Computed example of a mutant assay.
Amino acid sequence: MIKIELNRVEGDFGFEATDANGHVAKIDTSAETGGTNFGIRPMQMVLMGLGGCSGIDIVMILKKQRQTVESFAIKIEGEREKGKEPSLWEDIKLVFELKGQIDYDKAYRACELSMEKYCSVAATLRAGNTKINWEVRVN
């Protein structure tokens, strides 16, 4: 079982979330809704989780294929539903940018496996009808 502890530590909406290993994430809402920009917005954390989940998958797959990943970045953009509560992620686009001695077809397949099979965050978002598009750039 995964355990997270959340404590309010800054103003009305500034929280620190701590996992069982002591890692801390700061969470807040926008200044327009009463926050103080103390931390990341919760829905932004979902996009970060998607990037982290898929990034780990992709690097693992490429390492098994003996590809040399010298650098790896993911650019993520998301659009939320308009005029709904809760306002879910409607569309998300990821651009995987890899550099190194990497075969493009292997990189593409690693990204495809992550996004369609292995990444639990992507699967969770798709279950809520989020459209996820992605592209791969190598070198």
Results as ranks from 00 to 15, higher is better:
Gly51His: 03
Gly35Asn: 09
Met115Cys: 08
Gln67Ser: 10
Met45Gly: 06
Glu81Lys: 14
Glu90Cys: 06
Ala73Gly: 10
Val95Phe: 11
Thr29Ile: 05
Val46Asp: 07
Ile76Tyr: 08
Glu97Gln: 08
Arg41Phe: 11
Gln101Leu: 11
Gly55Asn: 04
Tyr108His: 15
Gly52Asn: 09
Gly100Glu: 07
Gly39Leu: 12
Lys99Val: 08
Gly34Lys: 03
Lys117Ser: 09
Lys99Ser: 02
Glu116Val: 13
Leu113Gly: 05
Gly52Lys: 09
Trp89Asn: 10
Phe38Leu: 03
Val59Arg: 13
Ile61Trp: 00
Gly39Lys: 04
Gly35His: 04
Ala73Cys: 10
Asp28Lys: 01
Ile102Arg: 03
Asp91Glu: 06
Met48Gln: 09
Ser114Phe: 00
Gly78Val: 09
Asn37Leu: 10
Lys63Tyr: 03
Lys82Ala: 13
Ala110Tyr: 00
Met43Lys: 13
Gly49Val: 07
Thr33Gln: 04
Glu112Gly: 06
Ala107Cys: 12
Ser30Cys: 02
Leu94Gln: 05
Thr68Ser: 12
Ser114Pro: 08
Lys84Arg: 13
Pro86Lys: 03
Gly39Asp: 04
Val59Thr: 05
Asp103Pro: 01
Ile27Lys: 05
Thr36Tyr: 01
Leu47Lys: 03
Glu79Ser: 13
Asn37Asp: 15
Ala110Lys: 03
Tyr104Ala: 12
Asp91Val: 05
Ser114Tyr: 08
